[in-house]
Simulated scan of single mutants.
Amino acid sequence: MTDALPDVGGNAGHAAFLLPDMGGGGTERLTVELANGFAARGARVDCVLMQARGEFLPLLDPAVQVVDLAVPRLRHVPGALRAYLKRETPDALLAAMWPLTSVAALATRGLAKRPRLLLSDHCPLLEQYARPLRTNLSLRLTAPLTYRAADGVIAVSQGLAREMEQLAHLPQGSVQTIPNPVPKPASSRWGAHVWDDMARPHILAVGKLKAEKNFALLIRAFARLAADRPGTLAIVGEGQERPALEALIRELGLEERVRLPGFSATPGDWYLGADLFVLSSDFEGFGNVMVEAMHYGLPVVATDCPHGPGEALGQGRWGTLVPINDPVALEKAMTEALAATGKPIHQRARAGSFSAKAAVDAYWQAMFP
């Protein structure tokens, strides 16, 4: 899964990556790339999880040690993490996803051998935690107190970096931007057969079924498109919004036109047989799935949400950007993209610029300066 990386040999350092679990999301996919890439370079690597579970867990290289803190709640993390840090003394710790980032900063205070601490977020925090008010207030209080205690803060897009600087009261330009590595996703030998005999064109979306992905918008836009032509929409992923999305599909009479096949360990199968990729999110930190689609030469239509799509698509150079939460604009852009003559070679070239090696190089320098 990871690009070939040189083994630097010798004492390359001990890196730890902290996450809630290894569920099938963009942050978890990034962690797989970094952990495997660091291990390939000869580093000792620990993947430290609140709970050792998730679809991406089997994708970790056997050389990566999985550390199960076995804690169900955040309030149990400081003690368990601190015990691990005292026992294993890693040289660097990268914690991702607020509020786990803030908890990690608290857990490292006063350690006799404190690791170099880096904090990373992958979605716009103010949008993600706008509600409830109590959570929003907690974010606004804890981020300035804890993020300034870190040795470095990393964002996956420039827009997100500026937001984090404002939120945590950090100096302008102090948050480092490292775009996500997005390799070509795995496919099985059956490839596009996952689409079976579904009518073309094949329109694809990939991501966790959660509210901010706004797959309901995509389904409503597809309903408009499907009224005049054949076609199939597949939304590959799993999550808590499944019941609501299934109800919407029934309400619109699209049971035979929209598929929710669940999480796929080989999403390349779906990209291989697709004609168009659509991202309908209300907000994104980066939007890995758009780049995955470009690896397969697919045209991309995406909402111009904060902060990732505009940057990843070059403000429209490599895809079409539409306003958020506008099913009419989204349907129009989908129709035009399906009718246009695509340039797969340009899409693939753009996708290639987000290599695993470039990301591992950047994170390596941040963790082992």
Rank of each mutant, 00 (worst) to 15 (best):
E163N: 11
I219K: 06
V156K: 00
H202E: 05
A155L: 08
T101Y: 02
D151C: 01
G23K: 13
E292P: 04
E163V: 11
A161Y: 12
H193M: 14
C47P: 03
D304F: 08
I203Q: 00
Y296G: 10
P6G: 10
E163L: 04
A192I: 03
L57F: 13
L60G: 06
G231S: 07
G308K: 02
Y296R: 00
H202C: 13
D151N: 03
A149H: 12
M164N: 06
R189N: 09
S187P: 08
G287S: 06
E284A: 00
R131H: 13
A130N: 14
D275R: 00
L137H: 10
P132D: 02
L321K: 08
A83T: 14
L59R: 04
A143P: 03
E246N: 03
V194M: 08
L338F: 08
E33K: 11
Y129M: 14
L245D: 08
A112H: 13
K343D: 15
T89Y: 11
D121Y: 02
E212M: 02
L94K: 00
R148A: 11
L204I: 00
E238A: 05
Q365K: 15
A234N: 05
W318S: 00
H307G: 07
H14N: 09
L118C: 03
V360M: 14
K208H: 09
V300R: 02
G319S: 00
R189A: 12
K86D: 07
P58T: 06
L85Y: 00
K210C: 11
P124S: 01
L338G: 14
L18K: 14
L272E: 15
R109D: 07
